[in-house]
Amino acid sequence: MIDLVNISIPNAAGYALLGYLVVFLGLVMLMAVIIIMGKVMHREPKAAPAAAAPAAAPAAAAPVVKAAPAPGSAGDFKLYNTDPRDAAMVMAIVADTLGKPLNELRFISIREVKEDEV
């Protein structure tokens, strides 16, 4: 049994090398788990409409189909630590400052920047 408290220099070198390999191995395994999980998750939405098609039941297949964005919409945008009311005001101010109509601007996300982050 190796004494970890009074570790010798060759043993320390061995442990350092082994430790680094273990980190790689562990993360490769985790990466494999994430890839498998992603593949399983991505297969599910595709499989559902295919299975529903032969049954010719449009009502059953309807929840799977993602609703098309409204005309002129660029889709969802994300709010980070921002109240929707504040976000609406920010968007209105930006549109006003730029002199452009709001529906011609595309907002991807709005994040509150704290004073100490500036």
Partner: peptide, 17 residues
């Protein structure tokens, strides 16, 4: 891991390193 090895060289114990 390099700092771990360096710490052992400087006389720290395994857990300290």
């Amino acid at each position: 891991f390099i700092a771990f090895f360096g710490a052992v060289l400087l006389g720290f114990t395994g857990p300290q390193a």
